[in-house]
Design a protein around this nucleic acid. Structure first.
Lengths: 307, 307
DNA sequence: TTTACTCATACGTAAAAAGTATAACAGCTA
DNA sequence: TAGCTGTTATACTTTTTACGTATGAGTAAA
C-alpha cells in the first residue's frame, strides 16, 4: 500500500470513474494518464481490500461493495468541500472549478459576455465552458450545470426554467418574391425550407395567437446540426427556416430576413438549467445560477419563463 | 502549495497538534520529525490561507479560525473513519490502532493476559499499552481509553465503573508479633507503616462492616510511587500497608501476609474506564470495552461495580 | 479478420515529503 | 544575569512515490 496519495483524491477519482463510465474517460477528464487513474483505483481497492469495480476491456461496472462506497464517498467529498468552502470563505472569493455546458449559439453570442464578466468578478475561479447542442449525459460529462434549450429529457436531473424563446418562420424577401404571398400556413409548403437537426418527422407545427395549430410538411432542401450554418443558409436565400428570435433580431431590423407569416409561430422553447439533485451546491455554483437567472431573460428576444 | 500530502492527514496532524499542545509533542506522538509536523501545519495554513495557530517558542494557541476548523476537522475525520470502517468491515477483522492507558500493577499482572488474548483474536489490530499510575491529560496523551483505579478527576470525560477493589491492611506475621495483638484501629498506630504515593494527609480511614469509620495517623517508614515496591517492602516486614486484595490474594493464602484487623477495611476503590465524550467510537474500541468489562470483574479480589 | 478501443504492467524520471543539522528564541533555575 | 532546556523554523540531503511513456493483452464492433 502506498502511503501518500491523498485519500480524498482517491475517492474523487473513484467517483469520477464511476460517473465517466470508464477509466480512460476519467483519465481524460482529470488530465491524467490512463495508467495513473488505473493505479489510483487499484490503490483504493487495495486499501479497502475489496474489488470495487469489475472491469473487462470494454465494460466497467460497480461491484456491490463499490456501489456502497460510491454513495458514501460522494457524501464525504461533499462534506470536505463544505469544510473547505467554509474555511476559505474568509477570503470571500470564489474558488475551484465550474464546468458548464451550454448551447452553441446562445453560449457563443450572448452568454459568453456574462461568463467573462463572471470570471472577471471571480478571478480565482476556473471555468470550463463547453458549448454543445447535443443531449449530454450529465454525470458522464461531469459538469456542474447544463443549459439546454428545449426539453432536457433526463428525469433524474433538477430542471429550472430560465426563459422562453419565440421562434419565427423567416426568409429573405427575395426568396418570398419567387412565390405567391403566403397568408396561411399551408401556403408555406410551396417554398423550399432549411432545417436544424434533429428535425423530427419532417413536420412543422405552427400556431396562431388564437391557439389554432396547423402542421405542415414542406420540402426540406438542407438540414444541418449547426444553427449558424442554418442562419447563413437562410440569409443566402436557400429556404425558409424556423429560428429563435434572439438569433435574428438584427436581421429583422435590417430586413435581411423577414417574418414570413406574422401571426403564426413555431412552438416556443424553454431555456432550462439542469443540475444534479441531492448534491451539495458549492457557493460558486450558486453564484453562477444567480447570474445566469438574470442574464438569460435579458437576451434580446428571450422572455421570462412561465414557470 | 505542495500537491500531494493527504488532506485528511493534514487535518489529523492539525488535530493532534491541538490536542498534544505543541508541534514537538505531536511529532513524537506521530513518529515524525518536528520539522515535518511543522511543515504540515504550515501547509494546512497555506491551503486555507489563514493562520490556524499562533506559536511562540513556548506556547501554542489556536486562532479563532483554527478553533473553528478544529471542530469541523474532528467531525470530518470521524466521518472518514466511519466510512473506512464500514467498508473494511466486510473482512470483519478489527484494524487500526488502539491506545490504552492502564494502572501499572493491574495492567502488568492481570489485564495483560486479556490484552494479549484480544490482540491474538484481532491480529490486524495494533495496540499501544501504556502503563501509568499518574493522572494523565487524556487529550494530550491521545489515548482511546484510560483505565483508572480511583477517581478520574476529569469532568470532561465519560467515566464508566468496571469493578471495585477491596483494600486490606496487611503485614507479615513476624512484624505483628513484635507488638500487641491489635483489636481496634487505634492499635494499628503502634506499628510502622509503608504507603503508596500520593498519600494524602498522612491519614488512613478504616471502616468496619457496621459502617463505623476511624481515622488513624500511624508513623510511615517509607513511601513509594510503585505498588510492587510497596508490596516487596511489606513482605520484607518493613511495615503495615494497605493493599488491594487482587495484589495479595496469594500472600494471604500462603500466610506470607495476614489480614491485620479482619473486619476493618480501607475505603473501596472503583476501577473506571474513561473515554472521550462526543466522539465516534471505532468498532475496535467498542470491542475492547466489551472485553474489559468482562475481564476486570474476573480479576481475583475484584467485585462487580455498584454503578 | 481487422480496427479501435479498453485496461494492466514495466520502467525511467521528476516531484515531493521525510529526515538531519542548525539557528533563533523563550521560559526556568541557579 | 547567565546557563540550561525545550520550543519552532529554515537549509540541505536523501528517500519515497506517483507520474508519464511505452507496451502488451484482450474484447467488441466493422
Amino acid at each position: 500500500m502506498s502511503k501518500s496519495l491523498d485519500r480524498l483524491t482517491l475517492l474523487e477519482t473513484f467517483v469520477r470513474i464511476a460517473d465517466a463510465g470508464s477509466i480512460s474517460a476519467a483519465a481524460r477528464d482529470l488530465n491524467l494518464s490512463q495508467p495513473s487513474v488505473s493505479r489510483q483505483l487499484a490503490e483504493l481497492e487495495s486499501r479497502f481490500q475489496s474489488q470495487l469495480m469489475r472491469r473487462t476491456t470494454h465494460d466497467l461496472s460497480l461491484t456491490a461493495a463499490g456501489a456502497e462506497l460510491l454513495a458514501d464517498a460522494r457524501q464525504l467529498l461533499d462534506e470536505w468541500e463544505a469544510l473547505e468552502e467554509k474555511h476559505l470563505e474568509t477570503a470571500e472569493a470564489l474558488r475551484g472549478t465550474l464546468k458548464i455546458v451550454a448551447p452553441l449559439a446562445i453560449g457563443q453570442l450572448h452568454l459568453m459576455n456574462t461568463l467573462l464578466q463572471f470570471q472577471q468578478q471571480h478571478p480565482l475561479l476556473s471555468l470550463s465552458w463547453q458549448l454543445e447542442d447535443r443531449r449530454i449525459r450529465f454525470a458522464e460529462v461531469g459538469c456542474d450545470c447544463w443549459i439546454k434549450i428545449g426539453s432536457v429529457g433526463d428525469e433524474s436531473l433538477i430542471v429550472e426554467p430560465l426563459g422562453q424563446v419565440e421562434r419565427i418562420v423567416v426568409a429573405t424577401p427575395a426568396l418570398l418574391a419567387t412565390g405567391n404571398v403566403p397568408n396561411k400556413p399551408a401556403d408555406l409548403a410551396q417554398f423550399p425550407w432549411v432545417a436544424l437537426e434533429p428535425f423530427e418527422g419532417q413536420q412543422i407545427p405552427l400556431t396562431n395567437p388564437k391557439g389554432k395549430t396547423v402542421v405542415i410538411s414542406p420540402p426540406v432542401r438542407m438540414t444541418t446540426n449547426n444553427i449558424f450554418a442554418l442562419h447563413k443558409a437562410t440569409v443566402a436565400g436557400l429556404g425558409l427556416a424556423i429560428m429563435p428570435r434572439w438569433l435574428i433580431e438584427d436581421d429583422l431590423n435590417h430586413q435581411t430576413l423577414v417574418d414570413v407569416l406574422p401571426p403564426w409561430r413555431a412552438p416556443r422553447l424553454t431555456i432550462h438549467a439542469a443540475l444534479l439533485p441531492g448534491r451539495r451546491r458549492p457557493r460558486r455554483l450558486q453564484h453562477f445560477l444567480v447570474v445566469i437567472r438574470v442574464a438569460v431573460p435579458q437576451i434580446p428576444g428571450v422572455e421570462q419563463p412561465l414557470d
